[in-house]
Design a protein around this nucleic acid. Structure first.
Lengths: 131, 131, 131, 131
DNA sequence: GTGGTCTAGACCACC
DNA sequence: GTGGTCTAGACCACA
């Protein structure tokens, strides 16, 4: 698996899991319809609790990024990803505002901040052309 | 006071406080040397406990954004803000990556994401240049 | 536990706690990776409030001497201790200067003061090499 | 006056005052019998409260480093400084132990620590040959 | 009056 | 059970 956890981090493990799976989808490592490891096997691989994996999968399911089938197991949403909703935009802006403020206070210029954002995005989708 | 809290939010109150003060400094509402309300008075104004305010103030003091003058009160760092350190850049990128992934997955294009970042930054510092 | 507090002392309890834990690490009683008592149990053992223990643990975490594993508990930094930074040297010198002045005023000779320092250091690490 | 205060420091102003005067005596800048500024004038010079200066002077008087006369004002103890008492040694060792532990934990060797102590002492009395 | 410290007791997220 | 957060209320050192 491509997932790396930092057990000493302040961010909860399930959050890290969610983030990494989302990044996996964004980067194309995980394609629509692709299967994800079963809760049990992923938990075992990562050495964490079943509940933790379950919580992450459930959150992603609620967001519409995953589908959970009784038999097929867990797969990446094949029927089209959720779009950019009003709620999402609002949440995104709120978080960007916090980051922008911290950057501005430390003297990082608007242009640099924007470039940083662009670079991070670009880097993330850089490897999309895989199988 | 210009601070608005969402007591129902899942983000800790002291975090909201920290964010809002940083935004206050970034936007110029709070200028270097400006006094902040005393711990007790701010706590009372916001209807929260003084320890919560104290925690927020202390975090900002650690980051070098505030100074705590013994017995005089709390003021915005007058001796130059902290710069863009390696650690800060890393933290910024990590958080941007998470946001970028969520945006990319929902089909928000690179250009839109970058523009969004720029817009948020610009909006934040738009009102600088007051008294 | 090896910790002894003087509740009557004018030095804050959390400071005494910090000092004793640092001495514990320096002397080898606490080895990298060793677990520390949970906040609550230590607080109970010492007959103090859990917030006081929490404050001490957090300070040591900031300094990089402890790691707080979410829900697993607190352990002594296993990934290498922080080194001698510029800031640390400065702080050390400032405090030594105060001690040296008091000693010099009372007629304690340079050699005696230096020997005293060396002796204290040596005594502290004398029992290393257990377990 | 040779006294410099850091109003943002965590150490109380009166403590800083005490330290600086002790260092003044140790370094020979202040000789036995030398007059110190009156409480009022020193407070004014430093821009601090009368009580603060008074407290510092009183502490130093109790330690036997100063004499306070109704008419002569405040002078550096002319009748011999206090010696190295048992109590002083104990206090010195306790504080050295704390410093030594912090140094040892960060990997500063015994020799370096001892040298550091010696150097600080020496530097302090380096200018003793004044008028 | 200000921040610093401490206590007692509570709820929650996490695992 | 663990740490994280929050509240309520208290005393103290400092200026």
């Amino acid at each position: 698996m491509f997932i790396e956890l930092d057990l000493q981090s302040e961010t909860p493990i399930y959050t890290q899991l969610v983030d990494q799976i989302v990044e996996g989808i964004a980067s194309g490592v995980l394609q629509p319809g692709d299967p994800l490891p079963s809760i049990r096997s992923l938990a075992e691989d990562l050495g964490i609790n079943l509940h933790t994996v379950n919580k992450a999968y459930n959150l992603l399911k609620q967001e519409g990024l995953l589908q959970v089938h009784r038999k097929k197991g867990v797969i990446v949403q094949p029927d089209g990803m959720p779009g950019v909703t009003e709620a999402f935009e609002e949440k995104l802006r709120r978080q960007l505002r916090s980051l922008a403020a911290a950057a501005a206070v430390r003297g990082m210029a608007e242009e640099v901040f924007a470039q940083e954002s662009r670079a991070v995005y670009r880097e993330m989708i850089a490897n999309r052309g895989r199988g």
